[in-house]
């Protein structure tokens, strides 16, 4: 009986650890979200860039985007919320929009087009995967340093 209880306890502990791991896997997924204010062409129609768009994330102003500008932020988790204060044309009153997006798990970089989103286009029009090309430095082979020493200052 005692032995049985011991194994049940061990099994429950293992299960709890696995559940925590799965939870961390889901809630900790990081994404880089690129937000751009560029004219979008979709199904033969053109959706023009805004005159100005202020992007607020987590209560802080991330950037003020003019036409053809882009900004980026990092997000942990699968949902992203931002506030946009948009001026569509020069001299217009700015309007405030709150954007809530569910981020695809498999995408590292996500490009969100503001004019497309505001035009209520389908998600595939204004949200695309953004893959960064490796820089020239990253693309060149590096020599592996496998010596024993580490910089002492780091310790």
């Amino acid at each position: 009986m005692n032995n049985k209880r011991k194994w049940i306890f061990r099994g429950c502990t293992l299960l709890a650890i696995l559940l925590i791991a799965v939870l961390m896997f889901i809630v900790g997924r990081g994404h880089t979200v690129y937000i751009d204010n560029k004219t979008l062409e979709y199904n033969g129609e053109s959706y023009g860039a805004l005159q100005k768009s202020e992007v607020w994330v987590g209560g802080e102003r991330l950037s003020k985007l003019g036409k053809r500008d882009r900004t980026m932020t990092t997000v942990i988790g699968n949902s992203f919320e931002m506030k946009l204060i948009n001026t569509v044309n020069k001299g217009d009153e700015p309007t405030e929009t709150t954007v809530k997006i569910s981020l695809p798990y498999g995408w590292d970089g996500i490009l969100v087009n503001i004019p497309g989103y505001l035009a209520n286009l389908p998600q595939e029009a204004w949200m695309t995967e953004f893959i960064i090309e490796p820089t020239a430095e990253e693309a060149t082979d590096e020599e592996e340093t496998t010596e024993d020493d580490i910089p002492m200052g780091d310790f």
Partner: peptide
Amino acid sequence: WQIWGIPGVVLAMIV
């Protein structure tokens, strides 16, 4: 796996 922040640290510990 691109698990960031504290969840990344916790997951790394479990792994």
